[in-house]
Amino acid sequence: MRILVVEDERRLARAIGHGLEDHGFTVELAHDGETGLWKAREQDYDCVVLDLMLPVLSGEQVCRQLRADGCWVPILILTARGGAEAEAGGLDFGADDYLRKPFSYRVLIARLNALLRRTAPARPVDLVVGDLVLDPARRAVRRGTTPIELTRREFSLLEYLMRNAGRTRSKAEILDHVWGADFDREPNVVEVYVGYLRRKIDQPFGTGSIRTVRGHGYLMGDDDSGRPEPAATGDG
């Protein structure tokens, strides 16, 4: 399950992200309302954890705009504001649930699971590219009937590429969405992990699902030729 956490306190955002990842969620972070709104519009998330007091755009503005756009992703509000009036206000402008700071991770996980159970029937279960199938709920991958074991990071990378199948994604976009905006390593880590994925999902099967688009990035698609593409040494 993919969760977008929009929280301007970076240490808290990272702590929430690590806590959710430890419970099997795939997490992306945004640190201001404008970035959070853009990500929520551009990507498919199972839930958005949204702080109210954000720079650029407030959490309320983000929530109202998403609902006005017809985006009904579940939204869990995080805020230091207390009282029934504040909670009712959050629900009135389109949020699905409300959690006051400070909170326990146990309660946060329980609230998220409750939201996901309520919305699960309307959400497609599997991501499919050719005969490659990824099940976000079970965090399972298979090629045809053959299961494929992936690490957590490999799974997150594959999920991002499959959700964007048919669209080229740059190294910068992949780093931002899979590793997070605060990741400070060399972008070559993307090449390394694409190589890991190719060795697991393509090379044993003679396929080439992940293509290198020279000078642009990587493209996930069904390889009609049935032949694996040579591993890339770079985007350029």
Rank of each mutant, 00 (worst) to 15 (best):
V6H: 10
E7R: 04
R11P: 01
L12K: 00
A13R: 11
R14H: 15
A15Y: 04
A15V: 07
I16Y: 05
H18N: 09
G19V: 06
L20E: 04
E21Q: 13
E21P: 12
D22I: 15
G24F: 12
T26A: 10
E28Q: 15
H31Y: 14
D32R: 13
T35R: 11
L37N: 08
Y45S: 12
D46W: 10
V48F: 05
L52K: 08
G59N: 05
R67E: 08
G70F: 14
G70L: 13
C71L: 12
P74R: 10
P74G: 05
A80F: 02
G83H: 01
E85Y: 00
E87W: 02
A88S: 09
G90R: 06
D92T: 14
D96M: 04
Y98C: 06
Y98S: 06
Y105N: 13
R111F: 11
R111C: 10
N113L: 09
L116A: 02
R118D: 13
R123N: 00
V125K: 10
D126Q: 09
G130Q: 03
V133G: 01
L134T: 04
D135V: 13
P136C: 01
P136I: 00
R138C: 08
R138Y: 02
R139M: 08
V141H: 08
E149Y: 02
L150Q: 10
R153G: 00
F155R: 07
L158T: 04
E159I: 00
A165P: 04
G166L: 02
T168S: 09
T168Y: 00
T168V: 15
R169G: 04
S170W: 00
A172P: 00
I174E: 01
R185H: 03
E186H: 15
E186W: 02
N188Q: 11
N188G: 06
V189Q: 01
V189E: 02
G195A: 10
Q203I: 11
G208A: 10
T212K: 10
V213L: 03
V213Q: 10
H216N: 05
H216L: 08
Y218A: 01
D224K: 12
G226C: 05
R227Y: 15
P228Q: 12
P228R: 13
A231T: 13
A231D: 14
A232G: 15
